[in-house]
Design a binder for these strands. Structure first.
Lengths: 202, 202
DNA sequence: TGCACAGTGTGCAACTTTGCACGGTGTGCA
DNA sequence: TGCACACCGTGCAAAGTTGCACACTGTGCA
């Protein structure tokens, strides 16, 4: 009943403080203008400690809560077993995106910072690969396959990651006008249909 | 009739020498053991010059000839206009992969180095994003769409990049036993079919 | 031929990222 | 309660990455 324990709580506090400091400073001064040293100082810890919590500056901005929280696996397991994997993943990820909506303003800021720096975008992709591994594992469990042997889970995870990335970028570029889950749904519909040639009228 | 000109030729020579030195040293001593300084020395140029040609160590290994050579655009334009985009891209990329087969040994070495270092894989993804932009542009031209406005070309390019990445990794992990183009074909077939649930028998 | 210019190669400095070693403090067990 | 252990925070050093300024040399033009 002690819960997470004092140690764990302290660690989380540090991580949260670092992530918050990163976002605040980046939003105020621009991404490249802020250094890890400043972030660490703002969070009240040492320079080196920053890299004990995040493996890169980008990760501090884009994965404030950490990657392998297993939320996707849980959400996926909750889906109706009768659903095919792609449909189940679509619903799970929509739920995940809805969660994101909780601190909508923070994410708006994050993507705004991201949009201002093209370099950041490339590195953001790297951050995403960790999530893809997690997704692949969860999908393999659902289909009863082996991540190493079978192509399907890994491919599906990679494709979902790609769709997610594209959706996020376009959502930000468009100023957030179409709802994020809707944009994601559009992409997933295209995938489910086998990426058919677009109709000529638009 | 002077061709590329002396200046351009010299530049290419330097780039080629750097890429060759990178591959040779990495294959011999391991990726993390070789430093940019050693590579530059081996190629007979200064440390700083390395980064005039490649934006990262990874790029020197994985894109020895540079990104935007436009080969994909040319190959895509050669495909039968009646083919839907996905099918045309599939054929074009297969042709590209066949080109890779020309210096099969070099690529085998590259992927071998890549497989030995998990970190490298993540960074490799970053390198791939440049190609995806090129693909998106070529695809947009084929479908008569706008890369900025329309989702389709960007999404398709991202998905193709994902499929390519997954295929390459699996091909290397499997020791290159199934032919690379065949593996890629399998992935593309799944995509074209809308990523249906895998059959339970395997 | 001679000149102005643009593109390479180079050195320097700042910053990011990572491996290693060490000290202090929760945590689990006797 | 007291002890051994594991883990977090920290400092240091080496390597990767990038912007800036400068020298040299093809290139294009008068």
């Amino acid at each position: 009943m002690t819960g997470p324990g004092l140690r764990e709580r302290k660690k989380q506090d540090t991580r949260t403080a670092l992530a918050a400091a990163t976002l605040r400073l980046a939003a105020e001064h621009g991404w490249s203008a802020v250094t890890v040293e400043q972030i660490a100082a703002e969070a009240g810890v040492s320079y080196r400690t920053f890299f004990n919590h995040f493996s890169s500056k980008e990760e501090a901005l884009l994965q404030p809560r950490g990657a392998g929280t297993g939320r996707f696996a849980v959400l996926l397991a909750e889906q109706d077993p009768a659903l095919p994997p792609l449909a189940a993943a679509r619903t799970a990820l929509r739920a995940e995106l809805a969660t994101l909506d909780d601190d909508r303003e923070a994410w708006r800021q994050r993507l705004s910072v991201l949009a201002a720096e093209p370099t950041l975008l490339a590195r953001a992709v790297e951050v995403g690969t960790a999530n893809e591994r997690e997704m692949a594992g969860a999908l393999a469990q659902r289909t009863g396959q082996d991540v190493q042997r079978d192509l399907y889970p890994t491919l599906l995870a990679a494709v979902l990651g790609a769709a997610l990335r594209v959706t996020l970028v376009r959502w930000q570029c468009a100023g957030g006008s179409p709802d994020l889950p809707d944009q994601f749904d559009e992409a997933l519909s295209l995938l489910a249909a086998g990426l058919p040639a677009p109709s000529r009228d638009h």
